[in-house]
Each structure stands twice: as structure tokens, then as C-alpha cells.
Simulated assay, not measured.
Amino acid sequence: MKIDYNYDVTYHYNMATDQIIVTNIKINLNREEPTQKGNGFWDTVIFANPNANLPQELGNYYLPNGDLPGINGDSLWNKYGNNNKDVFAFVSQNNQTEQYTIKYNTSGITPYAVNRNSDGTFTLFKTMDRGNLPNHSGNGDQGWHIWWINGNLKKTITVPQAPQRKTTEVHYHYNPSVIRL
């Protein structure tokens, strides 16, 4: 699947908690024609809150089936995207027929806090990808196992830390010879 995307994110930095508060996000997806075809699997990318949990989807399928029975872009949207405040945009494409579904969260987002990453950046949104891996059954049939992973597409920003006052030493002076009553 090939997609281009653009985004508009509204956020503010809370210096007291060293967090980014995201208050609005809009993502626009543009699908490009694929350069190669597969066996009919529904490749899926979800743009989501960086704190969102990966979907849990169990299942194996065997060729010539291209995916689990009853799966298509709309069923995946209804299962993982629709009415989910952590999902901002969704694209799913059948890698054989090139049929696709693009959906957006139209109910708005619930503001969320983002903590600083270990490298000092903040991740405003991430992607979660649906894929498959070969799974040999042991009886000669080659099956495919469904998995979800955090994707490589994400938006990180850097917010400079507030300058902190540096004090290397403090001197006090006390003179015991001066006593006043």
C-alpha cells in the first residue's frame, strides 16, 4: 500500500508537567496505486493517539484465501476505528483487488497528554499496521498469521526545555563579634 498524508495538529506545552496536550488533530490520506499485488490480504494503517493500544486480532488463514473470512476494509474500520476516540484516520486496501477504504474520525478527539520520549522529543501521533507472516502448519500447508505492530509513520516534535537557574555554590557570612540588643 502506498499513501501520502498531511496533518494539522493543535497542541500546547504544559511546562509544569513537561507534557504536550493535543487538543485537535486532522489527518488527510491520499492513496496511490500499488506497484505490486498480493494474495488478497487487507493491509491496514491506523493513525492514532500515541498512547493507543495495538489492536488484538487472532487468526490464521491458508492459501488460496487472501484473509480471514468476512474481512474487508469496512469490517476492519467497524472493529478497530469506528467510535474509537484514539483513532484519527484509517486506510485499508485489498492487495489483490485494490479495493480500499479510507475513513476519518468525525466525532472529534478527546484531548490527550503526551510525555517526553527518552530522546527528548514528543510523539503527537503514531501509526498501527496490520500485516501477516508465514505460519507453517506442520502438515505441509502454508498458512498466514495476522499481526498488528506500531508502524514507522509517526510525528515527533521537539520542545525546548525551560532554562533552569544554575547555582554552583552559595556563601553565607556570619560575624559572631556583632551582637545587637
Rank of each mutant, 00 (worst) to 15 (best):
G70H: 02
T44M: 03
Y61D: 10
H145E: 14
T110A: 13
E57A: 12
N14Q: 10
T17R: 01
N84S: 13
H145L: 14
A52D: 05
Y61N: 11
A89L: 10
T106R: 07
V87C: 08
R165Y: 13
K103D: 04
D86Y: 08
N84L: 08
H145Y: 12
N53M: 10
E57I: 10
F47K: 09
Y13L: 04
H136P: 00
D4C: 04
F88K: 02
V114T: 06
F125S: 03
W147L: 13
K154C: 09
G70W: 00
K166F: 11
I21L: 14
K26Y: 04
T101C: 02
Y61I: 12
M1E: 10
N139E: 13
T23A: 06
N6I: 02
I102H: 09
V87W: 06
F88H: 02
S177C: 05
G131T: 13
E33T: 15
Y7R: 06
F125E: 01
N65Q: 15
K155L: 14
T10Q: 08
I149C: 10
G120F: 04
S118C: 03
G81A: 12
Y174W: 06
G108V: 00
Y80T: 09
D86H: 03
V91G: 01
L76V: 08
H145Q: 15
P163H: 10
D4F: 11
W77D: 00
R116H: 12
Y13I: 01
N14Y: 01
M15A: 15
N105I: 12
D18A: 07
E33P: 02
W147Y: 14
Q161G: 12
H173M: 09
K26F: 00
